[in-house]
Design a protein around this nucleic acid. Structure first.
Length: 350
DNA sequence: AACTCGGGGCC
DNA sequence: GGCCCAGAGTT
């Protein structure tokens, strides 16, 4: 279904001029800054990104620096932000930009989209904000705002709906300020046209154009189907300590949190008796000192339900588990990316 | 078209 | 306890 959003342009741009938040990557929209910020902002709120962005740019001020950064350093810069493939793809793309684009991002949406980690939204965002290309940048905010304005009950998780919206936007996007128009839609979605049933319609610069508001449907839109339940995984986490050093290991190559570090852990929740039996076979001279509390960590699609044990080891040689490395707490904090999922047990390290 | 991939903030 | 967030890549 085609929608005409032409009338929104003047109101949204004017509102954006008065209400845009001051953000580092907005004040200085160099392609590299816009790129890094847009990747960080994928599925991530502005407030969470700010400090990561500043640190990242300070550490890796140019695409050349990013292309050369060491994997562990990169993961450390991303630690806690989540979706770690975003960071790996940044580096991959930076190498391609150095080798194929003379060190500068291409000012072309299709070329941008070829780079790892840059899809339809991000290519539109970088294209319009950094290069003033008249292209749409449709994210969750834009879908919500536009479907409310149109009074549309389309299922916004459908790819076709997103594609049609891109076309509708590109039909009316102002050629002199495409990046500002896209950002005005996102800014409105983030600060006024809020999700979860609390839009601030009385503050909205386009409420007179909004069919959802007119019809009293603003809480029913956007339409999304329900998500399926998360899978629950039970784990027993071991805090193994030897003279102030703690055992950690690198997670396997693929899948959840791959390539990051973790506290050693076993499938299933072991009772203290089971733990004592198990430790005999793993490390005969280790002692189960005490039970730690239970903890839960929720990912998008699974939950870890964990129990922990504090295990004391007299000599590292007594633990014949080759994949473990033994590191003091200060080094872990400085050099090893230990995901937030282990936070409850990480507190035991000192 | 469905699944995987993090973490946090807000109700 | 559930929702959603300036989504992209893989299957």
């Amino acid at each position: 279904m085609k929608n005409d959003y032409r009338e929104t342009v003047e109101y949204l741009l004017h509102w954006y001029d008065l209400n845009a938040r001051i953000l580092e990557w907005r004040s200085n929209p160099k392609p590299y800054y816009v790129w890094i910020s847009e990747i960080m902002l994928q599925q991530t709120r502005v407030e969470a990104v700010k400090s990561y962005f500043d640190r990242f740019i300070k550490e890796l001020p140019t695409i050349k620096d990013l292309a050369a950064v060491e994997e562990d350093r990169l993961m450390k810069l991303w630690e806690g932000l989540g979706y770690y493939n975003r960071a790996r793809n940044l580096k991959k793309a930076a190498i391609i930009v150095m080798e194929q684009y003379n060190g500068e991002l291409p000012a072309n949406r299709e070329e941008l989209k070829k780079l790892p980690g840059i899809g339809s939204y991000t290519s539109g965002a970088i294209g319009s904000i950094a290069f003033q290309l008249p292209v749409a940048a449709v994210d969750g905010n834009v879908l919500r705002v536009m479907k409310r304005i149109a009074g549309s009950f389309d299922d916004i998780t459908k790819e076709k709906v997103k594609k049609e919206l891109e076309e509708d936007i590109e039909a009316i996007i102002p050629k002199d300020r495409p990046g500002d128009y896209n950002q005005s839609l996102m800014e409105l979605g983030a600060t006024v046209c809020l999700p979860n049933g609390k839009p601030l319609c009385n503050q909205c610069p386009v409420m007179h154009l909004c069919k959802a508001f007119h019809n009293g449907d603003e809480l029913k839109i956007p339409v999304k189907p329900k998500k399926k339940e998360r899978v629950i995984e039970e784990k027993t986490v071991l805090v193994m300590e030897c003279a102030g050093y703690y055992a950690i290991r690198k997670r396997t190559e693929k899948g959840l949190l791959h390539g990051l570090w973790e506290l050693p852990n076993i499938e299933g929740k072991l009772s203290i008796n089971q733990m004592e039996e198990t430790i005999k076979t793993l490390a005969p001279y280790a002692k189960v000192e005490r039970k730690l509390g239970e903890a839960k960590h929720i990912f998008s699609h699974k939950e870890w339900h964990m129990i922990g044990y504090y295990i004391k080891v007299e000599r590292i040689e007594d633990v014949p588990i080759p994949e473990l490395i033994w590191v003091d707490n200060q080094s872990i904090r400085k050099d090893y990316s230990l995901p937030t999922a282990f936070e409850a047990y990480r507190k035991e390290l000192n």
